[in-house]
Design a protein around this nucleic acid. Sequence first.
RNA 1: GGAGGGUUCGCAUAGUGGUCUAGUGCGCACGCUUGGAAAGCGUGUAUGCCGCAAGGCAUCAAGGGUUCAAAUCCCUUACCCUCCGCCA
Length: 420
Amino acid sequence: MLDIKFIKENADLIKEGARKKHIKVDVDSLIALDDKRLSVLREVEEMRAKQNIASDKISQIQDANERSSAIAEVKELKEKLVGKESELKEIEPQWQKLMMEIPNVPDPTVPEGETDAQNMETRKWGDLPSFDFEPRGHIELMENLKLVELERGTKVAGFRGYFLRGDGALLAMALWQFVMEEMSKIGFIPFIAPSLVREDNFVGTGWLPQGKDEVYSTQDDLYLVGTAEVPMMGLHKDEILKAEELPKTYVAFSPCYRREAGSHGKDTKGIYRLHEFTKLEQIVLCEADHQESVKWHEEITRNAENILQALKLPYHVVVNCGGDLGLGQVKKYDIEVWVPSEKRYRESHSSSYFHDFQTRRLNIRYRDAEGKVRFAHSLNNTAIATPRILISLLENYQQKDGTVVVPEVLRKYLGKDVIS
RNA sequence: GGAGGGUUCGCAUAGUGGUCUAGUGCGCACGCUUGGAAAGCGUGUAUGCCGCAAGGCAUCAAGGGUUCAAAUCCCUUACCCUCCGCCA
């Protein structure tokens, strides 16, 4: 959500931003509706003021006749007021709906484009592995080493179901532990976040209402999160933080659930696209300053790169084009890791900042040095997502005989150098 | 799942229809006092919206209702506490 005043003063900027994001939005209708809303609001408030005064007077009237005629008078006022108020009540949900549809403005450095095909590579790290044999895909590797149960996974959990097994399970846990330790070393507070949460957290983070098809709901009006960003952003909902508490830097573990509606044909094999996975997510709340957001955006991106570098997985960073940005995102980098069997990079991390788009919806504020209450800025990035990262990890570390070398930094958790 | 009790200005509390523009204590800020400090005394201490301003409107968990008038009465929901049941 943006500030209505900002929208009105920068209507062209908003329209241009929506165009760049390939989102259809009717800014002019919102502005017209807001003008209407304000004029009705002024009338309502004026009538309420009048009624409050008249009503107060009644308590001082002793004479019974005078009193009942005064009450009759106020009653009339009230009837008019109720009529006006109902006008306002009609406008408000429409206003709210339009406000929710207004996208945040993308940064000027965001490239033009409609789909991820137009994302632009900004940097690359790591030498691509060269094999003196035909590298196996992750499915073959994992099934041979009994690291995953895909068929039985489907039997038990349905489409895209899976079990991690043996060293596959241990590898996932090793990654969680390793990344938690690394992130906590640099001051990110570890969390295990709830994954079954209330709707307002989804609306606040911008996943709902427009992403209804993507989210699992329950019969108790709770929803399953697709990322720990959702509960972690809810953590400070309706709070006014102290400036010296910022930045808040968190790393949160959670199971993640995504319906993947509309992607039924995509990535149907293996463990790339799953309904249920596990992720450690970085979340940052910082002061309301663009440069501060940019600084933290680079930093959480760098944190993820450091993890991939520690794992020695070749990756590149792309800047997402306008059409590949979410409603609230100002700018996003995807980190994509090398997948030898596909001879291409595939997304493993997604790093974005929102300015105050989310915190405005969630009412997360802080008192700045001058004592002014302001909406904080929010950012998030993946720290590690399992089992997806195993695709790249296992394929890059595979050997001719089908065994897989364990990345050095994970050996202490696995207790072995090679998975065989 | 059942029964009961709660939710008030950072914290603790008062408030059962108009005098609540929400009192008091603590905390915090500033000032007085002091050689300095403590104590004491005084002043201040929520948020949002409308308005050029003066000022006004709203908010006592949330939503709805009764009433000329609601923190206060009624209904619904959420959450917290106690007890029973179930349970890792």
